[in-house]
Design a protein around this nucleic acid. Structure first.
Length: 112
DNA sequence: GTTCTGACTGCGA
DNA sequence: GTCGCAGCCAGAA
C-alpha cells in the first residue's frame, strides 16, 4: 500500500516519537516495516537536514548516543534530550524504561 | 556493473 | 562495566 518509500516511512516513524521519549535505530526501522535496517536509518539521518525531525531522540540499542563524546552533535543531542525531560548521563540515556512504553506507543494503531 | 562505507546489532571475551 | 569481531542492508561513488 505504500507509495511511500522506505526512507519516507523511516522519517515518519522518527517523527512519531513523542517528545520526552527516545527510540532505538532498530526500533525505528522495525516500526517503519524494515526490520534489520537500522543502518539505513542512520544513513538517512546523516543526510537529513530537517529541523522538524527529532533525530536527537534516536539512540543505539544500548540506549547510548550514537556519537563519540568528542563529536559536536553529541553534546547537542544530549542537551536536547535533557531539555525534553530525558535524563542523560555522560552519553547514556537513563530511564530507558521509556523505550519499553515506546514500544506500545509506536505499535499503537494509527488514526487513534 | 562493482566497491566502499556507515549516527547499527548481537554475541563472545 | 568495556572492547572487539562478524553479519547485515542500502545508498553513494
Amino acid at each position: 500500500m505504500p507509495g511511500k518509500s522506505a526512507a519516507d516511512r523511516i522519517l515518519a516513524a522518527i517523527r512519531a516519537v513523542p517528545r520526552g521519549e527516545v527510540a532505538g535505530y532498530g526500533e525505528i526501522a522495525r516500526r517503519a516495516g524494515l526490520p534489520g535496517r537500522a543502518r539505513m536509518v542512520a544513513r538517512l539521518l546523516s543526510g537529513n537536514d530537517d529541523p522538524k525531525l527529532p533525530w536527537h531522540r534516536i539512540l543505539r540499542s544500548d540506549g547510548r548516543i550514537a556519537f563519540p563524546e568528542d563529536h559536536p552533535n553529541f553534546s547537542e543531542q544530549q542537551q536536547r534530550l535533557r531539555a525534553e525531560g530525558v535524563d542523560v548521563r555522560n552519553g547514556r540515556v537513563k530511564g530507558l524504561k521509556a523505550a519499553a512504553t515506546l514500544d506500545e506507543i509506536l505499535w499503537a494503531p494509527p488514526g487513534r
